[in-house]
Design a binder for these strands. Structure first.
Lengths: 138, 138
DNA sequence: CACCGTTGTAACCATTGTAGTTATTACTAT
DNA sequence: ATAGTAATAACTACAATGGTTACAACGGTG
């Protein structure tokens, strides 16, 4: 069973850390909290940077948010780390036999339904902000 | 980017075939419509059988539904082929550092949100029946 | 300027899930 | 018995993941 990569949950972890500890956050410190290799963190940070969510100070170290925690939703993070592309959560088999009534129609009909399901999930992700998340930490 | 296996879309294809052509549907014919190897079809049929959705006549060949097409939803199929397990669409990294406020809380707080997102998707799948799908074929 | 801690990347690897394939066995009607 | 079918195990190639090592680039500080 394929699952959505931990890249997403790690990215949320990273952004939460920046929210809670805005100063002097080195990649190594983040790696210590996430409990993984610093290179993995840097890879994800690169994606968050490219998406315009964070800014990193090379050389000296440290990172900060480019939006407020209430402006960043889980959907923004999910999109930033390319964990699932537009309309691609479900993979649909291709090259069905077009000489069969089912084979001819299944792809487009099913894709439409699956797109709706994916959208429902993403819509739910968009309802949660980084601020809401971090405010639940004890 | 990981996507949900084509096992799901193939299973929907198979059930649609049984709906549209209820008689004399051999695995080889199905494989011809799906355009894949018959063993792939049999593997999926095995899962559909185990889930109580279909019944297969060994030896002689042929398959039939154990529920009506309006009773079978996309969620039933999705569950039958084990494409995603309960609360497991999103993988969340484990072993975060519990000595960090974020590391200590992230897993449970995030899991709760992701579960909601997954549920929203599955709820949408449950709204579409096999009958609705096949009635759209031209 | 030289040093040191940091970030940025490339390259490599083991692991895992997928989907196709071949081969063999078991079943059932004729 | 035979023919056609389903069931299943074993193997393969492929792709994404997540960790690792290595090294280059950056930027304050002494």
């Amino acid at each position: 069973m394929k699952q959505i990569s931990t890249r997403f949950s790690m990215a949320v972890h990273i952004l939460s850390l920046i929210t809670v500890y805005p100063n002097d956050l080195t990649g190594d410190f983040i790696a210590g909290s996430v409990n993984t290799n610093p290179v993995v963190i840097r890879r994800i940070m690169g994606m968050l940077k490219k998406a315009g969510l964070v800014e990193v100070r090379p050389g000296v170290g440290g990172a900060s948010l480019l939006k407020t925690p209430e402006e960043i939703t889980l959907l923004d993070v999910y999109r930033a780390v390319n964990v699932i592309e537009e309309n691609q959560l479900f993979r649909v088999h291709e090259d069905s036999n077009i000489r069969c009534q089912v084979g001819r129609n299944i792809e487009s009909v099913l894709q439409a339904e699956l797109f709706e399901a994916q959208s429902a999930m993403e819509h739910r992700l968009a309802q949660t902000t980084l601020l809401q998340l971090t405010s639940r930490f004890k």
